[in-house]
Each structure stands twice: as structure tokens, then as C-alpha cells.
Nucleic acid binder design. Structure first.
Length: 488
RNA sequence: GGCGCCGUACCCAAGUGGUAAGGGAGAGGUCUGCAAAACCUUUAUGCGGCGGUUCGAAUCCGCCCGGCGCCUCCA
């Protein structure tokens, strides 16, 4: 197949670029993980689904990917000067580490539900204080940082490239800088690498500058470089982290090493609710656990992938319902293919076999164009329709063709997009046990009733089963049953 | 104020120079005892508005209108 090469939109250059990793065949990738002080929301879902797709796709096309995603369990300072982890732990009257543990588990629970592959390494910020202190020492040695009263600040004037990611100059940022702590800094844009701890500060560590805790941006630099090297291929995160977080990461990393930090910066756009940004501070966020009460997590995943990762995604029940209907259509087609395959024997195809390669090419071209999942899904819908046409035809596809079709679903819908896992409850009917034979008895009785035109009786059976969540469908060659997907 | 993004059918949403993908919803049809599922047909001479460049623009440029984000913790 002649395919387009993979191109990725690089936030650093603001253009789409061919993807060429630092080392042939190997990709190092770091993504900013969650701060674990509350349950994850839809926005986290969008972000981590996005990078899951990127990892899955890179692996699918043959790269060996090392995927690192941090867990931030040291709070960052709020406007009030409080630490968000500490604030929440006081509120809930638990130790900050207990809070971190609770919500780290909650996070992974939600990510697992979304069928997001676990990162290869999930480093905790509190587990890398030593590395962070080392990095601060390095920056002090290089003259990019200075210490004041037990706190260490990064000197942005020492970095002539500061602002290259977000496209702003030092002058641009002056006005927006908040006033607190300004007195200690040489320049208002300087940012903290290490903060001295006030007496009541619970999370604190000894350092060459006294007891304190790491600054806002330090952990990502320290941990990404520890596991991926001083230069690596991809760094991802939400658009809201582009400035100042990623800008500062670049500054402190490149000043410390004198080498380019990251080759490709990838930023996902944000989720809106009724057109407004969803964020913790606005309090309008929908947690994933809430969403999962109404919608299958895979539907949420599918919904996210139906818009491009660099577009905003507006969350609404109506949009989710629409996504669910579409998703069920794909599930249904894939299920039918599996079923045909079971009874296909070694039959040869009759009629014109489906040109599967044509769909493969279109799907891969879409993915190669900056991971265009909406386009890729559109290809799956086209494919699905073509498959159904084949299955409905008088001349049936044989084993080989069915396997080729099934492979497309398995590789693209399951392996790459992760929206149709082979073992989804909705895909498989209940296996084993008494269910299948009992269902067969009911279906046989109903078939007999229909033969005798006892439609009231046959409809009663169908209605009562429907109430139990079992759907009957009368086909040409007999009645099929399946479990109903969730309602509403 | 500085930096940036977006505006495509009833809803969601691709498409960045070659004549409007896909999903949902609606309408009609095939099949069916009726349903369901599936399939077929159908729903934007037009992509916020006005100019401009071009043989040709949703796509490039300018202006205007409307919405949003970042500049402060946030995926």
C-alpha cells in the first residue's frame, strides 16, 4: 500500500511536520498527568484518550514506544498561596498522601474504563524529590537560577529563547504576572524551582536551601529526562498547560542541559460545556464517573474521538446520545461479522468480494494526517455499510473475506482506536451456562407460535424479554437474540 | 491590552486551492405478521458577513460581526 507518511502538528513550530524520531524505530513520549486531589473529569478523558491513541498508533505502525506519564502528588500553589493538595486534605481531614493515593486509584479506574492503556511508567512527583533537587543544583551552577531566603527561582533573563513555545515575549507577560512574591524575584516572570516551606506546610523535604518543596514545573522536567533522556521525541499535554507550564519546562530543561528538550510538542484542545471551558476552578466539570453512569465508557471514548484532538469538544447529553447510536452501529456490524465467521466453514466467497484494502488505505491516511480520528471513524462507517451490504447480499462472503473484514475491525476499531474491544459485553452474547440453551427454548416456542399465527403470544414473549434487556430480531434464517445496550 | 483559536445542514463534526466526508435526528422506501436490525433514497448551488487574489476559495489575503481560550492552579 502506498501511504502518506505520518505527520504531526508540532506546537513548537506551529506547523505539521513529518514525524522522525530521535532514534530509529523508538519513540520516547511524556505526557503531563493529573494532579490527584479529586476525581477525573471529561477533560482528563479527552486528553488521555488523545495520547492513548497516539501511543497505540505509533506502536501499530511499528515503533517501540516508551510512554511516561507523571502523577502529580505535590500540590501547586493556588492564588491564595495555598497548596491545592494540602487544601483538599485539610478539607477532608486526611493526610495528603492518603488523598493522593485515593485519587490516583480513582484516576486509573477511570482510565481503565476508557480502555486507555496504562503508561509504561507512572512516576510520582514525591518519589523524585532527589532528582528535582539535583536539577535545581544544576541550574544554580549554570547561573540560570538564584536563591533567596530558602527559595530558588529560575532567572528567565538567562534564557534568550524563553517564550518560543507560547509565542510570547517577556514584555508580553509582564502585565499578567501576579503580584504576590514579586518582591523576592529579580523579575516578575521568574518562576519558582524550589519553595521554602512555612512551618505549617505538611509536605516538605530537606534540601541544600532548607526545608521546602519543589516548584510548579520542576517535576515534569526532572522525571521526563530521568526516564527518556535529556532530549526526547514527544511531549504532550493540555493546551492550557502550554503557558506557563511547558514554557517553563523547556526553559529549565534546556538551560540545565544545553540541549534541545523535546522535538514534538503536542497539545490537545479542551472540553467545553455549553460552549464554556470546563475546569476545576469554574466548577462546571462533569466527572467521568458521573458520565459513566449514563453512558458506556467506550461511548465516551468514541464521542471524544469523533472530534479532532486539536478541536474543542462541546459536551452535551444530546451529542453523547448521537455518538452512542453511531457506536452501536459499528458494534452491531462487527458482531454480525463474528457470527457469520462462526458458521462460515471453509466456504469461498460468492459474488464480488469487498475491496478491503481500499478502506485500510483511507483509514491509515487519515491517521497519518495528525491522527485524524474523526476521518478515520468516517472510514469505518463507510466500511461498515459496505460490509452490511455484503452480508445482506444473496451471494455471501466466504471465510477468507470474512476474516479480512474482521481483521479491519480488530486492528483499527480495537487495536488502534480502542472503541470495539473484542471482549466487550455488548459484542459477545452470554457464553456458556444455561442462558443460551434457555434462550433457544424460548425462541423455538415463539417461532412455533408465529407459525401458527399466534402473534399476541409471540409478541408477549418478545416484550417480556425486552423488559429484561434481551432483544429479539427475526431474520430471514431464524431469530437472533442479543443483550440490549443501556438505555436513556 | 498582548498572544492564539473557532464560526460548515435541525444537532455533532471532517475537509486548508479543484467544485461540500461521516454520525445523529427527520422524511420516504425495501424486507417483516408487526417490530427490530440492515440496506436504498432524501435533507447546505453553499461553508458568519462584505470585499480582494485566482481559470477556480469553505479553504489564501483584508476588513467587519459573533463565540472562545491563554496571559493566574487547571487535561
Amino acid at each position: 500500500m502506498n501511504l502518506q507518511p505520518l505527520i504531526i502538528y508540532n506546537s513548537l513550530t506551529r506547523t505539521k511536520e513529518p514525524f522522525v524520531p530521535l532514534h530509529r524505530g523508538v519513540v520516547g513520549m511524556y505526557v503531563c498527568g493529573p494532579t490527584v486531589y479529586s476525581h477525573s473529569h471529561i477533560g482528563h478523558g479527552k486528553s488521555y484518550v488523545t495520547f492513548d491513541i497516539i501511543v497505540r498508533y505509533l506502536r501499530f505502525i511499528g515503533y517501540k514506544v516508551l510512554y511516561v506519564q507523571n502523577i502529580t502528588d505535590v500540590g501547586h500553589l493556588l492564588d491564595s498561596g495555598e497548596d491545592r493538595m494540602l487544601k483538599q486534605s485539610k478539607l477532608e481531614k486526611v493526610h495528603p498522601m492518603q488523598l493522593a493515593e485515593t485519587f490516583t486509584r480513582s484516576y486509573f479506574e477511570d482510565m481503565d474504563a476508557l480502555n486507555i492503556l496504562r503508561p509504561d511508567i507512572s512516576p510520582r512527583a514525591t518519589g523524585h524529590i532527589v532528582e528535582q533537587i539535583e536539577l535545581v543544583k544544576r541550574l544554580l551552577e549554570k547561573g540560570c537560577a538564584y536563591e533567596v531566603h530558602g527559595s530558588v527561582y529560575f532567572d528567565v533573563r538567562s534564557d534568550k529563547d524563553y517564550g518560543k513555545l507560547s509565542g510570547r515575549t517577556l514584555e508580553d507577560t509582564v502585565e499578567g504576572t501576579r503580584v504576590g512574591m514579586r518582591d523576592e524575584k529579580r523579575n516578575p516572570q521568574d518562576f519558582a524551582l524550589w519553595k521554602r516551606a512555612d512551618p505549617e506546610h505538611v509536605m516538605r523535604w530537606p534540601s541544600p536551601w532548607g526545608e521546602g518543596f519543589p516548584g510548579w514545573h520542576l517535576e515534569c522536567s526532572a522525571m521526563s529526562m530521568k526516564y527518556l533522556g535529556e532530549s526526547f521525541d514527544i511531549h504532550g499535554g493540555g493546551l492550557d498547560n502550554q503557558f506557563p507550564h511547558h514554557e517553563c519546562e523547556i526553559a529549565q530543561s534546556e538551560c540545565a542541559t544545553g540541549r534541545p528538550f523535546v522535538r514534538y510538542w503536542i497539545h490537545n484542545n479542551l472540553v467545553t460545556v455549553n460552549g464554556q471551558k470546563m475546569s476545576k476552578s469554574l466548577g462546571n466539570f462533569v466527572t467521568l464517573k458521573d458520565a459513566f453512569r449514563t453512558f458506556d465508557p467506550l461511548v465516551v471514548r468514541f464521542f471524544i474521538l469523533q472530534s479532532h484532538y486539536r478541536s474543542t469538544l462541546d459536551f452535551s447529553d444530546e451529542a453523547l446520545r448521537a455518538a452512542r447510536s453511531g457506536w452501536e452501529k459499528l458494534v452491531e456490524t462487527s458482531r454480525k461479522v463474528k457470527k457469520e465467521l462462526e458458521s462460515a466453514g471453509q466456504k469461498k466467497s460468492a459474488g464480488n468480494a469487498l475491496d478491503v484494502d481500499q478502506y485500510r488505505r483511507h483509514f491509515l491516511d487519515a491517521m497519518n494526517d495528525d491522527f485524524n480520528t474523526p476521518q478515520a471513524i468516517a472510514v469505518l462507517f463507510d466500511f461498515s455499510r459496505a460490509v452490511n451490504q455484503r452480508l445482506n447480499a444473496d451471494t455471501k462472503p466466504g471465510r477468507g473475506e470474512l476474516e479480512a473484514i474482521d481483521t479491519v475491525f480488530r486492528e483499527y476499531a480495537d487495536q488502534v482506536l480502542g472503541v470495539l474491544p473484542a471482549k466487550t459485553a455488548h459484542v459477545e452474547s452470554i457464553q456458556g451456562g444455561l442462558d443460551a440453551p434457555l434462550m433457544q427454548i424460548l425462541i423455538d416456542v415463539r417461532t412455533e407460535a408465529r407459525k401458527q399465527k399466534l402473534f399476541a403470544l409471540s409478541d408477549l414473549i418478545r416484550d417480556r424479554l425486552k423488559a429484561l434487556g434481551i432483544v429479539l430480531e427475526d431474520k430471514k434464517d431464524g431469530t437472533e437474540w442479543k443483550l440490549q445496550k443501556e438505555k436513556s
